[in-house]
Every structure is written in structure tokens, then in C-alpha cells.
């Protein structure tokens, strides 16, 4: 059972990478980046998981009960906030590119090469 979240994280990262590598639609590339991010976040949370443990709130934990590790949850929260910022900026750049070129196809918007 412990491997299930890890497999899910790996699956999310692979699907995201597939989108970033093979999709030419800018929005789909942005979705791919978000999927990789979710996979990494899931992996981070999993590293702190302990079987049968409760939420890491010091004052609320029952006597003798094990808690999951709080640090990965703090890390994941930070990573989610950073991910929110990057996703918002990525999508706004995609919108700006659409306004300039009238298309979201990565092959048609490229002016910089060589």
C-alpha cells in the first residue's frame, strides 16, 4: 500500500513530461508543467507519511499516537504557492502570445531560432 502514492506521483510526472515533450499547444504545455508539479508535491507529502499516524498538530495529538512528519507538509505548501505563481505567469504569457500571433501552436509562434 505504501507504494501506491509513489506510483501515482511517478505517473503524474510521466504524463506531465509527455505533455511538455510532445504537445505543441501552449496551454497543454502549461498543463503538463502543472502535472509534473503535482506529481512532485505528492512525492514530497509521501516522504513524510507514516502508517496510521495522525495530523502533525502538537496540541491535538492523542497520547502515544504517532504523527506524520510536519516538514514535508510545510515544504509542499511552499511548493504549491510557488507553483501557483509560475502557473499564473505561464498562462498569462500564453495569452499574450495568443494576442500577438492569433495561435497557440508552439511551431507557429517561434521567431527565435538558430
Amino acid at each position: 500500500m505504501f507504494e501506491a502514492p509513489l506510483l501515482a506521483a511517478a505517473g503524474l510526472i510521466i504524463i506531465g513530461l509527455f505533455a511538455v515533450l510532445f504537445k505543441t499547444n501552449l496551454i497543454k504545455i502549461a498543463i503538463g508543467v502543472t502535472l509534473i508539479e503535482s506529481g512532485v508535491n505528492l512525492f514530497l507529502i509521501t516522504t513524510g507519511y507514516r502508517k496510521g499516524a495522525v495530523a502533525p498538530i502538537y496540541t491535538l495529538a492523542p497520547e502515544g499516537q504517532q504523527m506524520v512528519l510536519p516538514t514535508p507538509q510545510a515544504l509542499t505548501l511552499t511548493a504549491i504557492v510557488i507553483g501557483f505563481a509560475t502557473t499564473a505567469l505561464l498562462l498569462s504569457l500564453a495569452v499574450a502570445l495568443y494576442k500577438h500571433h492569433g495561435t497557440l501552436d508552439a511551431r507557429k509562434i517561434r521567431r527565435l531560432r538558430g
Partner: peptide
């Protein structure tokens, strides 16, 4: 300049993927 936004978008995608690998 559409080129500036294009450059930012491309750098952003590859850089974010790289940063997520650092996080991994």
C-alpha cells in the same frame, strides 16, 4: 515585442521543469 514573450515562455517552461527536478 512578441519575441520577448516567446523567449520568456520558453525559458519559463524549461526552467520550471528543471526547478521541479531540483525539488524532486
Amino acid at each position: 515585442r512578441p519575441e520577448s514573450i516567446e523567449a520568456a515562455f520558453k525559458y519559463m517552461v524549461i526552467s520550471t521543469v528543471g526547478a521541479l527536478f531540483v525539488l524532486l
